[in-house]
Design a binder for these strands. Structure first.
Length: 245
DNA sequence: ACCATTTGACCAAT
DNA sequence: ATTGGTCAAATGGT
């Protein structure tokens, strides 16, 4: 219930996550068969793009802006990266998140009643996109089934490139540009895909960085080197929810 | 024949 | 030894 005393401490990430979750529920509602006025594709498109933006922000919140020194730690750092660059949400629609995924595994998890499914970005192979997610149904037998979805690493694939942050400047409203048949990629924003996870998205990243700096959470100069700093926000609000809307 | 999922084997970390 | 994540061969659908 009203546990507002720590309101100040509630992180931006938590709010973003909440927003994401709610949007996700809204989308589920709209897509549900029994919705009287069927949503237009424009509606869904907008929703998707919004979700996209939120998940981007979420991702960036957790990203330590490029560890420029690709030092000897790199062998171990991949897992660390995955760890740091991951976030978890609870949703009733684990699949409609604006991306295509290819399932590559399923496992029973110790305490869990349901198996966990493992997905990779569907375009990961061709484009070197490392984005990953896992989906796990929660035991709560609520009417709309609840799933815990964990995302790991941002998308670097084309879909992402034509991303909402750029496409969002209105005007593009008309079409579901999901077809992907368009090979005419306007900007060569990310060319080297290897560590593009950090290089390619420097702009929004620095935006977020700026926000955090402004919030006094981070000193502007050494914006890195501390893998376990303020960046390591773990979005596990899970235990703290039990009331809706 | 192609492609995505399934499923147990395998591996790294605990 | 146990657990979670990934691989890859087998499977099944189109």
């Amino acid at each position: 219930m009203a546990d507002y005393k720590d309101d100040f401490a509630v992180s931006a990430a938590d709010h973003l996550s909440k927003g994401y979750e709610r949007l996700t529920q809204l989308r589920a509602l709209l897509l549900s068969s029994s919705t009287e006025p069927q949503p237009t594709s424009l509606t869904i498109d907008l929703l998707d793009k919004s979700l996209f933006c939120l998940s981007n922000a979420l991702s960036q919140l957790k990203i330590s802006p490029r560890t420029s020194g690709a030092s000897s730690l790199d062998v171990h750092s991949n897992k660390r990266k995955r760890r740091l660059h991951s976030w978890t949400i609870t949703t009733t629609v684990p699949h409609f998140d604006g991306h295509e995924w290819r399932k590559y595994g399923q496992k029973r998890i110790h305490g869990a009643a349901f198996p966990r499914s493992y997905y990779k970005c569907a375009h990961g192979k061709e484009q070197g996109c490392l984005a990953t997610k896992t989906v796990q149904q929660l035991e709560s037998s609520a009417d709309p089934l609840q799933f815990e979805v964990s995302y790991s690493l941002r998308h670097t694939c084309k879909d992402m490139e034509a991303d909402p942050l750029l496409a969002m400047d209105s005007s593009t409203a008309t079409s579901l540009s999901l077809s992907g048949a368009q090979e005419a990629s306007p900007q060569p924003l990310l060319s080297d895909l290897q560590d593009a996870n950090y290089e390619a998205f420097s702009e929004p990243e620095s935006l977020m960085e700026a926000m955090l700096i402004e919030a006094g959470e981070l000193n502007a100069e050494q914006n890195m080197e501390q893998p376990f700093g303020v960046w390591d926000i773990d979005l596990e609000w899970a235990s703290s929810h039990g009331h809706d809307i």
